[in-house]
Amino acid sequence: MYGDQANKLVADAKRFSNLPSIPIYQADSVKDIVKEINDLNRDAEYLSTISDNLKENEAEGNSTQQEEDYRINQCQTFVTHLSMRRNKRCLLAYEKLRSDKLIEFAWLNIDPAESINQSASSSTDTAATAGAPSLPNSKTLLPQPKTIPNYTTQLDLNNLNHFEQDFYKNYQNLITNYKSKFGEYLDLTGDLQPPTDIFIDVRCLKDGGDVTTEYGSFNLIKDSQFYVRKSDVERLIQQGYLEEI
């Protein structure tokens, strides 16, 4: 029946709505739905020509048979349009959910360049192992960002379609522009937790080499501890290099 394809798409959307990552774009399913809409559109055009014919005949003579035909035609047109509308709604819901997840990821305070490298290398990993779980040493190289419940914290650019990749890049530019208005005084992508202590103890979770923050440089060796100002290391905590104690 019309709309079944769209239903599958929406069910898939519901499945990944709470995942921390964005799954691959269902190009086939979307193509099928668009094809279905095209078919429906052809039906609707055909029905409208019939209805025009009926109207012309109606002007000549008015029989009960013709009136019934006209009503049937109206009903068919209406249902066809409803099916198209439902398909449209499902497609939009799917795309909107994906774009929302992209927006969520874009606001995370992860350096854009790094996130692209990270996703690129992870995609090559998955390509190399072809479906098998990615190598453990790849995980030691790439720190996992802090998990936020029901939030998109991972992104693989290869899962996006061409338009979504463009959208993501443009949206990142928008964020950068917007942030630049606030200057250095306010970091909009900062930690959402209210500040508590000025100085904190942090433990290093991953080897990161020499990392230079704006206020000085650290040598990140695994399991070493520092007593530092929280605002200095906030970004490193968000990126998963450090853990607050």
Binding site: I103, E104, W107, P149, N150, Y151, L192, P194, P195, T196
Partner: peptide, 19 residues
Amino acid sequence: MVLPSHLQGNLTPTEINFL
């Protein structure tokens, strides 16, 4: 939305502490 869903429409205990 940009704000994580667990922060929408409700305050977290840390935010209440902050207030």
